[in-house]
Structures are given as structure tokens and as C-alpha cells.
């Protein structure tokens, strides 16, 4: 079964499955223990190393299982974890399991341009105003018309000493907002990179200006970024290309890492994101097989009632026109051949002396004949006329 087409072959919106986009991705930690080595952590010894890779590895038999930051002894106590996802994903949730008492202040950021710029997704703090200058999140989600970065309670310490940071995109969005119909929400959930800034350890009291009285380190595992590979409704899976980059396996005449544009010949109407109800597939230009390229013309698209705006370029086989649907000057349509036939257009072959021009009737192939001349190509004298010696008046009335 093809998720992107129905049983009859008609295109339909399709999306990749929900995955942990962070799984196996390299995590960049601003601080990791073991350099220089200590009794508990040695970056050069796999049995005693706590690298950031443990945050996104599949787990299994790895021992140890938690990433540890270096000992933090002075402010600022920020430690940043950055996960490049490789391409755009549409986020559903982000979670991080702490292996020790969770921090009381965490910022969650996203990038949509592979780490060049960052925007907040949410904050987690017991002191939202003090730490981030924000009000605590309302219980029923954001008050505004769109999603926004809210400040949620800090991750709660569990009886085992750890804790879980859990962020759901849904919690930041007003109820009733639909991904298919809301470009704002589509933008909100899109991320190429995720960054978690651990800002304040739990043991340091309640003010951000509290100096570190005792050495502290952050410790965490199982960083999950739940989301779908962003393909704009035009692919059901993502693959690695020949350079090892993650890309959508685009359908519906689309291309690009996110299926974000129409393929070169598929520009009969503008690109659109697919929805659950409408595939909005890119349509191939109608060129009767005589052109390999086309361009989109918005004016023609509007005039056609938003049905077709493609204009064929470089029509071959002596064809011409927006759809290569008629013959270029000096050629006429062969009625015995289909419009898509390579030999659908025949040369007029107007007689160099008998015809008054080189352009024949597009439909019948009749050349314009001089007085007294007849025939499709004007190559004979009409009845009652005979050939003269003058190329200007090749046929004259028979005496």
C-alpha cells in the first residue's frame, strides 16, 4: 500500500511516522566530565566515561548510561545540550530524564536554520519571573491566538533521585488549532535543532545570583525529540541521500529536503502543503511530450480559474504554443497523427515559385498560392492556366 496514493492511484496527503528524531544523533554538550579525569569520570576510559552520546544512544548494555557535566563551581552554572536533528522535523514532544536531582530552571530552544538562530519553545522553572521574565503558564494553555513559549513548573524530583523534563507542543498551543490549517502552528512545531539550557541546579537555593557553594554537576540520559520528519504532506518516509543527509522521499511531483517545492517540470500550479483532505500535488505541465521544461505564470493561472498556469518552454518537434499544442510557423498539423506524435507537425513545403509565402494553413497545410497556381504546396497551374517563364507570375491564362 502506498500511503501517498489511494487505491486508484490518486495522490493523497501522507506523513512520516512519529520517531525519536534525536536517536543516534550527536549531542553537543557545553560541559562533560572526564577532562581532566577524576576518580568518578574519565573521558578516555569507556568504563568510566559519561559522554553526551549516552543521551541519544539506544541504551542497551551501555554502562554507564548517563551523561555527566563537569563539576560546576562558579556562576554561571549554565550547561547547554544541543541536538542537530539533521533536517526539519515537526515536533510533538521533547523529554529528558535526569539521573540526579533535576535542575530547577531549564530553557528549551529550537532552531529552524540549522543552528544559526534560536527561538524559545518553553521554559521550566519554579521562578518564571525571576529566571525568564515570564508569567507561569496558564492551566488551559496560551491565551493568545497562536502558540507561544510558556513557562512551566520545573521538573519534579522523583523518589529515586532523578526526574523527567517533559515538553509537549500541545501544551503551548491554544486548543482547537489544527496543523493542517494553521501556518502559524506549522512554523511553531518546525525545528532543525533542539537546545536544552540547564540553568540552575536544584541544590543552589532559589535565587539565580546564589553563588555555587558546593560543586555540582548535571546528569541526564534519554533525550528524546518526538516528531515527524517534515515533508509537508508529500512523503511518508525520510531517507539518507548519497552524502548521508536525511531527506524526504518526495512524492506528488515535489522535491527538496522537505518536499518544499515542485519539481522543475511540475509547475502547472503553485506548490502547496498537502492536508488530510487534499493532496495539493504538483502537476506536470501539459506539453504533449514536446518540451522538457516549463515555467509557472500566475496571471494565466488566475485567468484559468486557478487550474493551470504552466507555460511550456522550448517546444521541440516543430511545435509551438503554451502547451506545444500547435505547429510553429512553416509547419502544419498532420491530421493522421496524434498531437503527441514526434511527427505531428509537417513542413508546409510551399513551392518556392508557385507559393506567395512560406507559411501554410496550420490545419489544412494549404500554402498561399499566386494567381493561377493550385495544389496544397502551390506546385501546379490551375485548370485554364499554363506555366510561363516568369517566376513572378508562374501561371498565366491559357490563350
Amino acid at each position: 500500500a502506498d500511503p501517498c496514493h489511494d487505491e486508484g492511484g490518486a495522490p493523497r496527503g501522507c506523513v512520516p511516522g512519529l520517531v525519536n528524531a534525536a536517536l543516534g544523533r550527536e549531542v553537543l554538550a557545553s560541559s562533560t566530565c572526564g577532562r581532566p579525569p577524576t576518580r568518578a569520570c574519565d573521558a578516555s576510559d569507556p568504563r568510566r566515561a559519561h559522554p553526551a552520546a549516552l543521551l541519544t544512544s539506544a541504551g542497551g548494555t551501555a554502562n554507564p548510561v548517563c551523561w555527566h557535566s563537569d563539576w560546576l563551581t562558579q556562576v554561571p552554572l549554565n550547561v547547554t545540550l544541543t541536538v542537530p536533528l539533521g533536517k526539519a522535523f515537526e515536533l510533538v514532544f521533547v523529554s529528558l530524564r535526569f539521573c540526579s536531582t533535576p535542575p530547577t530552571s531549564v530553557a528549551l530552544l529550537k532552531s529552524q536554520d540549522h543552528g544559526r538562530s534560536w527561538a524559545p519553545l518553553g521554559f521550566f522553572s519554579s521562578h518564571c519571573g525571576l529566571d525568564y521574565g515570564r508569567q507561569p503558564a496558564p492551566a488551559d494553555g496560551p491565551a493568545g491566538p497562536g502558540p507561544e513559549a510558556l513557562c512551566f513548573p520545573e521538573p519534579q524530583a522523583q523518589p529515586d533521585g532523578g526526574g523527567l523534563l517533559a515538553f509537549s507542543v500541545q501544551d503551548s498551543s491554544p486548543p482547537g488549532l489544527d496543523l493542517d490549517s494553521s501556518p502559524v502552528l506549522q512554523d511553531w512545531v518546525t525545528a532543525t535543532d533542539i537546545r536544552i539550557v540547564l540553568t540552575r541546579p536544584a541544590m543552589l537555593g532559589d535565587t539565580r545570583d546564589t553563588p555555587a557553594m558546593v560543586p555540582y554537576s548535571y546528569s541526564a540520559t534519554e533525550l528524546q525529540v518526538g516528531g515527524r520528519c517534515k515533508c509537508n504532506g508529500h512523503s511518508s518516509r525520510c531517507l539518507l541521500d548519497t552524502q548521508g543527509h536525511l531527506i524526504c522521499d518526495c512524492r506528488h511531483g515535489t522535491e527538496g529536503p522537505d518536499c518544499g517545492r515542485c519539481k522543475p517540470f511540475y509547475c502547472d500550479r503553485p506548490w502547496q502543503r498537502a492536508t488530510a483532505r487534499e493532496a495539493h500535488a504538483c502537476l506536470a505541465c501539459s506539453c504533449n511530450g514536446h518540451a522538457r521544461r516549463c515555467r509557472f505564470n500566475m496571471e494565466l493561472y488566475r485567468l484559468s480559474g486557478r487550474r493551470s498556469g504552466g507555460v511550456c518552454l522550448n517546444c521541440r518537434h516543430n511545435t509551438a504554443g503554451r502547451h506545444c499544442h500547435y505547429c510553429r510557423e512553416g509547419f502544419y498539423r498532420d491530421p493522421g497523427r496524434a498531437p503527441s506524435d514526434r511527427r505531428a507537425c509537417r513542413a508546409c513545403d510551399c513551392h518556392p515559385v508557385g507559393a506567395a509565402g512560406k507559411t501554410c494553413n496550420q490545419t489544412t497545410g494549404q500554402c498561399p498560392c499566386k494567381d493561377g497556381v493550385t495544389g496544397l504546396t502551390c506546385n501546379r497551374c490551375a485548370p485554364g492556366f499554363q506555366q510561363s517563364r516568369s517566376p513572378v507570375a508562374p501561371c498565366v491564362k491559357t490563350p
Binding site: V353, R380, P383, Q387, R389, S390, P391, P394
Partner: peptide, 23 residues
């Protein structure tokens, strides 16, 4: 009545050299 095709050899191009086709 089917008339014969125009015979190019019969034309006199003396005064119309510039119109003479390349045939």
C-alpha cells in the same frame, strides 16, 4: 484534370536573380 508540376527549368531568372531559390 491534373496539371503537371511547375518545371523550374522553364523559368527565366534573368531579371529576378535575387528571387531565385536555392534548388
Amino acid at each position: 484534370e491534373v496539371m503537371p508540376t511547375l518545371d523550374m527549368a522553364l523559368f527565366d531568372w534573368t531579371d529576378y536573380e535575387d528571387l531565385k531559390p536555392d534548388v
